[in-house]
């Protein structure tokens, strides 16, 4: 059955081998213990790591060979922010975003603080980064265990779903454990580089 995101990739890093094959769309949750290959998978999808073989297709467009800056896939982990920018500068980083759109996302995500990001808490920084990512209208947003650093993270992600659906952005949220409160469309478990679907 056709899904927006179709992944079938292989990547070997020393003794470890990632063999990921799945189709999904919407809010996708992937969980697994440390060393199971979560970050490697996300970095392959983002184009940070080049895959050895296979394909990554999104809405019929093959992304596998597209450079990271043209892929429209945003990867976020706890260090993904621009420390020297203020909250406003960060949110309007692409310089093309409408003020109304910025105000909407600030309201939804509860971004009511100001100042340079380097002076904010980790959770505040990551909320701004996540908002910046959504405002860039990417194909895919990849969250590498950032939920643990944001207060009420899953509620915040749930609130973003209508916007993501409207702009046809899919999101992969990666965590150590499965989530019962995240409104997800697909759930996968990754073990030793192999990914399997999980029925919720």
């Amino acid at each position: 059955m056709f899904k927006a995101l179709e992944v079938d990739i292989r990547k070997r890093l020393g003794e470890f081998e990632l063999k990921a094959s799945f189709n999904a769309e919407g809010m996708i949750h992937i969980f697994g213990v440390n060393g199971s290959g979560k970050t490697t998978l996300l970095k392959c999808l983002a184009g940070v790591i080049r895959v050895d073989s296979g394909t990554i297709v999104h809405n019929g467009i093959e992304l596998t060979a597209i450079p990271i800056e043209q892929r429209k896939v945003v990867y976020l982990d706890r260090l993904s922010f621009f420390p020297n920018l203020t909250v406003e500068e960060h949110l309007s980083f692409l310089r093309v975003t409408e003020v109304e759109e910025i105000d909407e996302i600030k309201r939804i995500m509860g971004i009511d603080y100001k100042g340079k990001l380097k002076n904010l808490s980790t959770g505040q920084k990551l909320k701004v980064s996540l908002a910046t990512s959504v405002l860039s209208h990417p194909r895919l947003i990849l969250l590498d265990e950032i939920s643990a650093n944001i207060s009420n993270a899953e509620s915040t992600l749930n609130d973003l779903v209508p916007i993501l659906r409207r702009q046809k952005t899919d999101m992969i949220n990666v965590a150590q454990e499965n989530s019962q409160t995240l409104e997800k469309n697909f759930t996968f478990n990754i073990v030793n580089g192999k990914i399997t679907g999980v029925e919720d």
């Binding site: 983002a46 990271i68 800056e69 892929r71 260090l79």
Partner: peptide, 14 residues
């Protein structure tokens, strides 16, 4: 750290 650069490129910057 390379993460801010990866974020910037993910947002579309060369």
């Amino acid at each position: 750290p390379s993460e801010p650069e990866i974020l910037a490129m993910g947002l579309g910057l060369s």
